[in-house]
């Protein structure tokens, strides 16, 4: 066992661990803090991949990841949380026990799917893909268990983190994809920002469940 894969697995494992930590946070500021931590570890992981795969252009991806997901978006979301005065709101999340168990089941599933003896995938990509799939499924779990628009957005960005992890773990993945994932995060932010502000304007709340009252189906 050499040193290089160990480091990348350690970082991927950290990302997965932070995903678990996000699952049970019931207030927005700590949730956002953990998301920042996850993005930081992800940026580190990309930097390591850049060094390890000898692909300097991955450093740009790392920089974008750091700038957008660890600084810019959290800053905007903090501002938003303060402005909407929802930083003290306790969100009803599915209990810690059930969500942890569901999370572990999902991680088990992704390991079972990807970590098989004979799967022919090059380099460290196989383990990274398994971690990425776990983070992706945990992000999905978070999105379905939350009702607050801000935490759904954070769940979505955790999914994007997992995609970046998978894309950078795959050796020599064309550069096009990497920048575009980071870029799409930015675009998503614009969209999200527009939506959140409008939702606030219209409903005086960011609780998505309120949206459900306006079903177009009712006569």
């Amino acid at each position: 066992m050499s040193f290089a894969p160990d480091v990348s697995h350690f970082l991927s494992g950290m990302i997965l661990l932070l995903s678990f930590a996000m699952l049970y946070q019931d207030r927005l500021p700590p949730l956002l803090n953990i998301f920042i931590a996850q993005s930081l570890v992800l940026a580190l992981s990309i930097t390591w991949q850049a060094y390890n795969q000898n692909e300097p252009q991955l450093l740009i991806t790392a920089a974008i990841e750091f700038g957008v997901k660890a600084v810019l978006i959290p800053f905007v979301l903090y501002t938003l949380i303060r402005r909407l005065k929802i930083h003290r709101t306790v969100e009803t999340v599915v209990g810690i026990g059930p969500s942890m168990i569901a999370g572990m089941a999902l991680v088990g599933l992704s390991m079972a799917l990807i970590l098989r003896e004979h799967a022919a995938i090059g380099g460290t990509a196989r383990e990274d893909l398994a971690f990425a799939l776990s983070v992706l499924l945990l992000g999905l779990l978070m999105m379905v268990t939350r009702r607050n628009a801000v935490s759904q957005v954070i769940g979505f960005m955790a999914i994007e983190n997992s995609l970046v992890l998978a894309a950078t773990g795959a050796k020599g993945m064309p550069f096009v994809v990497e920048t575009c994932v980071a870029f799409s995060a930015l675009v998503a932010l614009i969209v999200i920002g527009v939506f959140l502000f409008r939702i606030r304007e219209r409903f005086d709340s960011v609780d998505v469940s309120i949206l459900d009252h306006f079903r177009g189906e009712q006569p």
């Binding site: 022919a120 995938i121 893909l129 992706l136 995609l163 998978a166 795959a170």
Partner: peptide, 16 residues
């Protein structure tokens, strides 16, 4: 996002 993950998986099996 699921589609992108699928695309990355396809790349990972094709790359070797």
């Amino acid at each position: 996002s699921l589609a992108l993950f699928g695309t990355i998986l396809v790349y990972s099996v094709a790359q070797p």
